[in-house]
């Protein structure tokens, strides 16, 4: 009997502790500002406000200004032309289901796709016609660490959805490459809306694949290139180069000469870089958005604190 009382008392205390912790860690919603109405007007730096998860905006030429914070919650965010994309985990889904939300230039919802997985990368093609993303997918609950990636594309005008580009016909050294373990992540499109680059992960290695969207094929052009991001002029790719386990160096590859330049950011960057213009790349690191020259010169500059997933309108 004594044991039962002890068990009950102990269980109650522990449950009470859990409830108190849960309730006290609820974010304070009363302090939040009323949401601002944002548009995709040129000259803004948009980003994810990390502490609230909402999309915020500052002028690109004065990033220190007080941000306007919208009511839109996203885990990843990207824009191009009149199109924006927001990846948001549906609350209360385990394993996670991600909403891929396509938005217009007033951040009104145009289309939503619900896909299984956790948001990793999101981009819009320079012409604003293709929205593409990468999700992390877990296999099963018994092997918690068995991850794979799924990269997909949505055509804004036709409504065509490619859930995963796994079926892309990839050629390596002239012959068709097929393996069970192929993973794609980090897509970037050229201004023509057809040429694209992505990372192919297979056999413990990563490759840069140059793709042709209309023919739906691609070829391996280089090894050890992850999360490519094509420059606005289409000549260079900013990417993360693996230099150790879990350590990546932000670099730029010249596609004509295949010459690599390590950028001035020496800390490990695990993000798909974003070209602000042909000379500067932006990236998220340690809950802040940074900028660094694309030619290896200069030093990193912090543009916004408490920020992630930068996007630039232009």
């Amino acid at each position: 009997m004594k044991k039962i009382i002890l068990a009950f008392a102990g269980t109650l205390v522990l449950i009470a502790a859990a409830v108190i912790y849960v309730v006290s860690s609820r974010p304070d919603t009363a302090a939040a500002l009323p949401p601002a109405q944002l548009t995709l007007a040129p000259g803004q730096l948009l980003y994810r406000d990390v502490s609230t998860g909402r999309i915020a905006s500052v002028p690109l030429d004065n990033p220190g200004a007080k941000p306007k914070v919208s009511g839109l919650r996203c885990d990843r965010f990207a824009v191009a032309k009149q199109t924006a994309v927001c990846l948001a985990v549906e609350p209360g889904t385990l394993p996670a289901v991600t909403d891929v939300i396509v938005l217009d230039d007033h951040l009104n919802v145009r289309h939503t796709e619900s896909l299984g997985g956790t948001p990793s990368r999101a981009r819009v093609s320079p012409d604003g016609k293709l929205v593409h993303w990468t999700l992390f997918v877990t296999g099963d609950s018994y092997a918690a660490t068995g991850f794979s990636t799924r990269a997909g594309i949505y055509e804004v005008e036709t409504g065509t959805l490619v859930k995963t580009i796994e079926e892309l016909a990839v050629y390596k050294d002239g012959s068709r490459y097929t393996a069970a373990d192929v993973n794609f992540w980090g897509i970037t499109f050229a201004a023509d809306g057809n040429r694209f680059y992505t990372t192919l992960g297979t056999g413990g290695k990563t490759y840069l694949v140059e793709g042709d969207y209309s023919h739906y094929r691609g070829k391996v052009v280089r090894e050890n290139v992850e999360c490519p991001s094509l420059s606005p002029d289409g000549t260079r790719v900013a990417f993360k180069k693996k230099v150790g386990d879990g350590v990546w160096r932000l670099s730029v590859l010249d596609l004509a000469t295949m010459k690599e330049t390590a950028l001035a950011e020496t800390r490990s960057v695990d993000d798909q870089a974003l070209w602000q213009d042909d000379h500067t790349v932006l990236y998220g690191l340690d809950n802040a958005v940074w900028s660094v020259p694309a030619d290896g010169s200069g030093t990193p500059r912090r543009l916004a604190a408490d920020a992630a997933s930068p996007a630039v309108t232009g």
């Binding site: 885990d75 985990v89 385990l94 394993p95 996670a96 956790t118 948001p119 990793s120 992390f136 877990t138 609950s141 918690a144 660490t145 068995g146 991850f147 990636t149 992960g201 386990d245 879990g246 695990d270 998220g284 809950n287 992630a308």
Partner: peptide, 20 residues
């Protein structure tokens, strides 16, 4: 186990592939 993937990727911004 159920929240770990979400936590690693969204909570901490880590790359889960490196845990595999």
């Amino acid at each position: 186990t159920a929240v770990l993937p979400l936590y690693l990727v969204l909570g901490l911004g880590l790359n889960p592939l490196q845990f595999g």
